[in-house]
Design a protein around this nucleic acid. Structure first.
Ligand SMILES: [Mn+2]
Ligand SMILES: [Mn+2]
Ligand SMILES: [Zn+2]
Ligand SMILES: [Zn+2]
Lengths: 146, 146
DNA sequence: TATTGTTATGATAATCATTATCATTTGACA
DNA sequence: TGTCAAATGATAATGATTATCATAACAATA
């Protein structure tokens, strides 16, 4: 955790941004909820527990900054809010998601299953892929198992 | 075109909805812009040309209805608006998209490239896939060709 | 150390896409 | 023709995000 924060700090510095206490508090919340898909409001609530004087605007600004630096990915599951997803360290691609239509759970696939597909797209469509988004909608194993 | 509308009419009737003049006007605009990815506001503007007395709320309601019936897919490319994408007739899957980071163009891949990937996901994650969303972000062939 | 300039912050107002409300209209049917 | 449910259009309300602006933090410099 501390090392992870240290590396994020370096990433910020390399673009001449500072890791202010507010920014660090936001990053800590994201790290502590790595599995989840928090909205800005979610992050705000959680940060306030440890850092009550933070402002909502600062949370939005920090999340925007982290998105720019590709430390988090901003994603939209179709409910009205953007959600923020910490990128696994060293991950070159955005992981995939499984959204359950029954219970609403969002599971993650960390493995990259798109290697072959991307080769085809690059060749046939002459498209230079930088990133991707892949989400499956269906029934999760928990809801199915009955 | 007329036959396509006729079939959509039947689809509505089968769920005991009517194809009102307003709804038909919306469907016509979608058909005339099959390649595009129109927002509700876009659709509203275009429908007004032929049907000036239509209300914005009706456009939203119609698009919602068409989404429910899986005649269109609602998609979000990360600018602040939802966009509506007519499903190709008989298509069982939502087609894929190529978003150019340079010029902003959105191209489509009608072919389903996810067959093998979906088999793996269904088996390994015990997830019953009903639909998917796949978008690639990168540089399109036009921007790359220079 | 005092001064200056830049960056970040927090409170709050503004924006804007979408949804809710409600009176009115339409059209099917008795 | 009268009745009823569904659909519509105008408009208000909502709610997430962004803009604004005065203040704070802080580094660099004199
Ligand atoms: Mn995720
Ligand atoms: Mn499309
Ligand atoms: Zn489930
Ligand atoms: Zn391009």
């Amino acid at each position: 955790m501390e090392q992870r924060i240290e590396r994020i700090k370096k990433q910020l510095h390399s673009q001449s941004y500072k890791l202010t206490p507010q920014r660090e508090a936001v990053v800590r919340v994201l790290l502590e909820h790595e599995e989840d898909h928090l909205s800005a409001e979610d992050v705000y609530m959680l940060v306030k527990e440890k850092y009550p004087e933070i402002g909502l605007a600062t949370v939005y600004r920090t999340l925007e900054l982290l998105t720019e630096l590709k430390i988090v990915d901003k994603i939209n599951f179709g409910d009205g809010v953007s959600r923020y997803d910490l990128r696994k360290e060293g991950a070159t691609h955005f992981h995939h998601h499984l959204v359950c239509l029954e219970c609403g759970a969002v599971d993650e696939i960390q493995e990259d299953l798109l290697g072959d597909v991307e080769k085809i797209v690059e060749q046939r469509w002459k498209f230079d892929i930088k990133d991707h988004r892949l989400t499956f909608h269906g029934i999760c194993h928990r809801c199915n198992g009955r």
